[in-house]
Amino acid sequence: MSSREKILVAVKNNQPALQQLPDLASVNAITYNDKFLQFSTVLTAIGGTVVEIKSTNEIIEYVKTNFSSNQNYITTLPQLQEFKALDENLDPHTLENIEVAIVAVRFGVAENGSVWLTGDEIKIRALPFICEHLAVVLQKNDLLNNMQEAYNLIGETQYGIGVFIAGPSKTADIEQSLVLGAHGPKTMTVFVVS
């Protein structure tokens, strides 16, 4: 038996007993009268941008106006034919020069300004982390109050990948100064479709 196998057997034999998960129904979760206002306030405070739109056509004009004219844009949304469609079979390394990636999200959480994406939305796992600017499309009706509601929605579902993202990448490790875009997108724009 190799050292690796011995370690894995030892870990397996010394695991703590399983415990029942807490009953989240008994937790007094926060709810908001205006989920959109809460979501926008929190996301803006952590460095994100919220743009309320009536249709996805407005995304095209916004992206062209607010990002460089380099036009290295990619999307997973078929209705945004103006931009290059993401080919799911691409080598993720070819995405390293993507300026703007535009993807749909399943829902947003008002409590913390986060959005939930799965492999179905992003197609290639690296996409929302390797682009220079991340833009996501969220239906206003898909805003939840809090993380308890979010976990109730995703709890038993199986995903290849699922991730909450809230705002652009950031760190304050460098001389205690906040740096945006340190390990991922420099900006995050959430297009909220009314």
Rank of each mutant, 00 (worst) to 15 (best):
D91Y: 06
L43F: 04
T187Q: 11
V9I: 11
T65G: 00
Q158P: 01
G162L: 03
A104Q: 08
K186I: 06
I60V: 15
F39N: 05
Y151I: 10
G47F: 03
A135D: 10
L18I: 09
D34M: 01
P16Q: 10
I174N: 03
S177F: 04
V137F: 07
V105D: 02
L43S: 10
R4N: 12
A85Q: 15
L95F: 09
T187I: 05
E121L: 02
T157D: 13
L37M: 14
L178H: 10
G184W: 08
A17G: 03
N57Q: 13
G119K: 07
E61R: 08
P168Y: 08
A25Y: 09
H133K: 11
H133V: 09
T94G: 04
E132V: 01
T157I: 15
A110C: 02
W116S: 02
V11H: 08
D120I: 00
D87K: 10
L37C: 10
L153I: 04
R106S: 08
Y151R: 06
N145W: 04
E58N: 04
L143W: 08
V50G: 08
K12H: 07
V103Y: 05
I102D: 06
C131T: 13
I74E: 01
Y32W: 11
L80P: 03
N89C: 01
V179C: 05
G47N: 11
Q38P: 10
L86E: 04
F107M: 13
S3P: 02
E82S: 14
Q158R: 12
V63M: 02
K64P: 01
A17N: 11
L178V: 14
V103S: 12
I53S: 10
I154T: 14
